[in-house]
Design a protein around this nucleic acid. Structure first.
Length: 666
DNA sequence: GGGTGGGACAATC
DNA sequence: TTCCAGATTGTCCCACCC
């Protein structure tokens, strides 16, 4: 218990210990009635699965704190004095690195998304509003913050705090546009500025100060008015000798203000002495909690005073970080552009334990991830499956693959294996991450060109904003090999892969079609999608089913039919374009750039084949074909045979379901 | 013992 | 009525292997 609370206090006011959402660390929330907000949030959350998980996490942190206290109490004074020697030595070493020669400016746009929305809809001005949805808010304007509404708060709770709150959906196209405008301004002050997100940037203004004979504060003021004149948006600025301090400073006079910390050691140490640790980037809720409750460290200065404890109880790198924060040190160099280390995709949905639904979600995410990897010319070796259970517990499971890949089939195959091991489980989120990139490829000319051409815009959450956007075809081609070893192109496969899963060839027109498909995926006619999906489905069928051991002792499926043991792709004559021009089935010529026609043509043959199969006596008809027809009929809106809900077959995945209604719930 | 991979989790916006 | 995100990076710890 802290702040002099007694157990009876907590019994009568249990919300006081519930700090999940509310924090007064956010700018614009200083005058908020913290207790009232905490009470509302507590009342709305208590009893929920989310709440229970928060309590579980809180208990773990308390355990950690207890453990740390115990270790602390066991430290002999001799131990502490030897750790103090380490601290003293490190202070000297760190001091030697102190660089007061640079002037850094951190710019932070004020309530960026909300401000942009207000610009495009002035009627929102002066009213409490937030950007996001009822389930989650991305940001809130300052009028809303007065009610305790803030970013990362669920919209339904925000509405309770502020019934008049207007919630506007996010529109990243707008935010990117305004972000670009601000960045044009930033370039005038530091061409190598570091963009931290859409609405934040670090600028080394040392040179521009010298050139213009102006102080850091004057440059900051100049930049802020320039940003306003170019965009109509206000921003806040922090000027300090390093990036860590500049970031802290920009938050001090938010919104529409600035704070200047002189390049002077005494000024820095005075500033840092009373600075709460939570204000520092890298110290979040958990670290703050641990440092405060286990070691009574509340300010940055405390970190220096209790340095021996930090080195005794934390890892060397953590203790070093804490100590440097206590000394007000931070990076002063312009960092090299970092290359990405991983790429991922995850989706939240209504919690379900239905294995069919889960596999369908998994397939959809694998597809999205694969698309993103193709767009960025990446192939990777480590696959991580992330799960969030219905009770909000996070699980991750990883596997290293034999080869680098970006194909959705490979991803799905291994992800299914990982998921299978977790079943039965009720999930509310599935995510897939690929890491350990093929550096050779990435650094090669072709892919490098692709990467630099496709610096994918991200939102303030780092999200890829062009997930389904079209690509520059020339650039896209650059990331593809010129090896034309395959002369046949399969109608629904825009890309071909070599043994390592690498792209061998791509027809730009088909690429274009693919991009169009991606763009229109969510609105695409279901029947069209179902047909197109079948080809893919069939190729995946054997792989996934074999992997999951589906064909061992085929059981009766829900229709009383024998589960399919052979993919119909083997039975069906495959359609491909001979010499890239003629249909292999009927000989009709359709040029490669007639991608839509080609698709329709292959759909025609597929439908024809499926109908033929359905017309043969049931004893010889393969179950898959019936299923496929039903899937197609269903997608077409016809009333198919009602499926009986037969006994659960954990080994059975109707892969049609993966694709026929894809993305509907996303 | 060092390297590597996997899992958990913190942090950021 | 609604009922707590998504993407990415980094660190730490543990297990396993050579």
């Amino acid at each position: 218990m802290e702040n002099g609370e007694t157990s009876s206090d907590l019994q009568s006011r249990p919300w006081q210990s519930y700090n999940t959402v509310y924090t007064n660390a956010k700018a614009g929330m200083e005058g908020v009635d913290k207790e009232k907000v905490q009470k509302v949030v507590y009342e709305m959350s208590k009893g929920s699965k989310y709440f229970q998980n928060e309590e579980r996490k809180e208990a773990l942190i308390r355990q950690k704190i207890e453990h740390m206290r115990e270790r602390c109490s066991k430290l002999a004074s001799s131990d502490l004095s030897s750790y103090q020697k380490v601290v003293d030595k490190r202070i000297l070493e760190l001091e030697a690195t102190r660089d007061l020669s640079r002037i850094w400016l951190h710019v932070d746009m004020d309530a960026f998304y909300a401000a942009v929305e207000t610009l495009s809809n002035p009627s929102l001005k002066g009213k409490p509003m937030a950007v996001g949805s009822l389930s989650m808010l991305s940001t809130a304007n300052y009028e809303a913050r007065k009610f305790g509404v803030r970013a990362a708060m669920p919209g339904f709770i925000a509405r309770k705090l502020c019934p008049d709150l207007i919630i506007v959906p996010t529109d990243f196209t707008k935010y990117i546009h305004y972000s670009d405008l601000t960045r044009k301004v930033f370039r005038n002050y530091d061409p190598n500025f570091v963009a931290a997100s859409l609405d934040e940037a670090y600028l080394d203004i040392t040179e521009v100060c010298r050139e213009r004979g102006l102080s850091g504060g004057e440059i900051a003021e100049d930049l802020r008015s320039f940003v306003f004149s170019e965009t109509g948006l206000t921003c806040s600025a922090g000027v300090a000798p390093n990036r860590l301090l500049a970031k802290v400073c920009s938050d001090i006079n938010k919104p529409n203000g600035k704070f200047l910390l002189p390049n002077d050691r005494v000024a820095v140490m005075t500033f840092i002495s009373s600075l709460p640790i939570r204000k520092v980037g890298g110290i979040g809720k958990v670290t703050e909690h641990i440092l405060k409750d286990a070691l009574a460290i509340k300010t940055c200065e405390d970190m220096v005073h209790k340095g021996s404890l930090l080195y005794a109880l934390f890892s060397w790198s953590s203790a070093d970080f804490f100590l440097s924060v206590g000394l007000g040190l931070g990076r002063t160099d312009t960092p090299q552009a970092r290359s990405r280390k991983s790429i991922s995709n995850e989706r939240t949905f209504a919690a379900t334990g239905d294995e069919m639904v889960l596999y369908r979600k998994l397939a959809e995410i694998a597809e999205l991830l694969s698309d993103d990897m193709k767009k960025e010319g990446l192939s990777a070796k480590t696959l991580t499956l992330k799960l969030k259970t219905a009770s909000f517990e996070i699980r991750t499971r990883a596997v290293s693959l034999q080869k680098y890949t970006f194909s959705s089939e490979d991803i799905l195959k291994h992800a299914s294996k990982l998921l299978k091991a977790e079943l039965p489980v009720s999930l509310r989120l599935i995510g897939l991450r690929m890491s350990q990139f093929n550096e050779e490829k990435r650094n090669g000319d072709a892919s490098q060109t692709a990467i630099t051409k496709f610096i994918v815009p991200t939102d303030s959450f780092g999200r890829n904003l062009h997930n389904h956007g079209s690509m520059d075809l020339d650039a896209r081609k650059d990331c593809l090999s010129n090896d034309n070893s395959l002369s046949l192109s399969f109608d629904t496969h825009e890309m071909s892969y070599d043994d390592d899963g690498n792209v061998m060839e791509a027809d730009p027109n088909q690429e274009h079609a693919r991009n169009e498909e991606i763009n229109t995926r969510n609105t695409m006619d279901d029947s069209c999608h179902a047909f197109r999906a079948l080809d893919k489905e069939m190729s995946q069928l054997v792989e996934v089913d074999a992997l999951l051991g589906k064909h061992e002792g085929c059981k009766q499926d829900t229709m009383g039919e024998e589960s399919f043991a052979v993919s119909p792709i083997r039975e069906m004559e495959q359609l491909f374009w001979v010499d890239g021009l003629k249909c292999s089935i009927c000989g009709i010529e359709v040029p490669p750039n007639f991608s839509e026609e080609r698709r329709e043509h292959s759909d025609f043959h597929l439908a024809e084949r499926l109908q033929k199969q359905e017309s043969v006596p049931s004893s010889s008809a393969t179950p898959i074909s019936k299923r496929s027809v039903r899937a197609v009929e269903k997608a077409k809106g016809k009333k198919g045979k009602k499926q009986k809900s037969g006994p659960k077959e954990s080994n059975y995945i109707p892969i049609h379901a993966f694709f026929t209604k894809s993305n509907q719930n996303f």
